[in-house]
């Protein structure tokens, strides 16, 4: 555990905790082997995790809505270089608000190798609302259970293994402010990124009367037209919603690309 008092003057930012094997690349990752996106509710410590990993110092505060623009940075871990994208904090991915559109489009079309969903352990129920939605869009997810110290203080205990089993993806308890759990988080990101950890994300039942039939039919039409997309059901749901971006992607055929494997020439992506 890191403590701020132990570091010398001038170094007291976020860099005081040494994470073995982590190399912070700040603003310029150069080339990279993988893209990691940070999603999460506002005020869950997303920016703190971002700062921890990149060595950058985005402002954080106990106050929803701090990060507005999309922030980017980079880090390297166990020989792989990652580009890290901090998505705007959102409660959901269902609405037409600009923030949610940015987050939704990036998770779907930005094709991140791993999406880290930062959740607030003190308000897990609401945070799971977003996490479950992310699990419908992409398979490679790591849930960062942040603020576990606060949760403990408030008398909330989370069964991490059970949660991970329910969600079908790794769940890592963290205290990002203190740097606790960062190694485990990086290991999980690395594992998912290289395929050592296989995710079987929980699919939502969405037992809404009248919806299931329509969703099944449209899903089979989508897979029929564009191949076996992992998120076909979610695409179908968005089409029923009238999502402009997805409708457009279907119209132009761009949606079919989501089925293809992540391009192998990753190192050259810039």
């Amino acid at each position: 555990m890191g403590s701020c008092a132990s570091c010398g003057a001038g170094g007291c930012g976020t860099a005081e905790v040494r994470v073995p094997g982590l190399q912070r690349l700040g603003l310029r990752p150069g080339t990279w082997d993988g893209i990691v996106a940070l999603a999460g509710n506002p005020n869950t410590g997303k920016s703190t995790v971002f700062n921890r990993l990149t060595g950058l110092r985005q402002h954080t505060g106990n106050w929803p809505g701090k990060t507005i623009a999309r922030a980017e940075g980079g880090f390297a871990y166990r020989g792989r270089r990652y580009r890290l994208i901090d998505l705007p904090g959102t409660y959901s991915l269902l609405s037409a608000s600009p923030d949610e559109e940015v987050a939704r489009d990036f998770i779907l079309f930005g094709r991140p190798d791993v999406v880290v969903v930062v959740t607030d352990a003190t308000a897990l129920e609401r945070n799971l609302n977003l996490a479950l939605q992310v699990l419908q869009i992409t398979e490679r997810v790591v849930v960062c259970l942040n603020l576990t110290d606060e949760a403990r203080a408030l008398g909330v205990e989370v069964d991490v293994a059970g949660l991970s089993e329910d969600l079908g993806v790794p769940v890592v308890p963290c205290v990002a402010r203190e740097g606790e759990g960062m190694i485990a988080l990086l290991d999980a990101v690395h594992g998912v990124s290289v395929g050592e950890i296989e995710c079987r994300p929980r699919r939502l039942k969405l037992s809404v009367p009248g919806l299931t039939g329509a969703l099944d039919r449209l899903t089979s039409l989508v897979t029929g037209a564009f191949g076996d997309l992992p998120q076909a059901r979610w695409v179908a749901l968005r089409l029923l919603h009238g999502d402009r971006r997805i409708t457009e992607a279907v119209r132009t055929g761009e949606i079919a690309r989501l089925g293809a494997a992540v391009p192998a020439e990753s190192g050259a992506r810039s």
């Binding site: 129920e125 609401r126 609302n129 909330v156 205990e157 059970g162 949660l163 329910d166």
Partner: peptide
């Protein structure tokens, strides 16, 4: 529906 699932999971995994 999503909240119902979150609530169910949270109910099971949080004490």
């Amino acid at each position: 529906a999503i909240y119902a699932e979150s609530s169910e999971i949270a109910g099971r995994r949080i004490r």
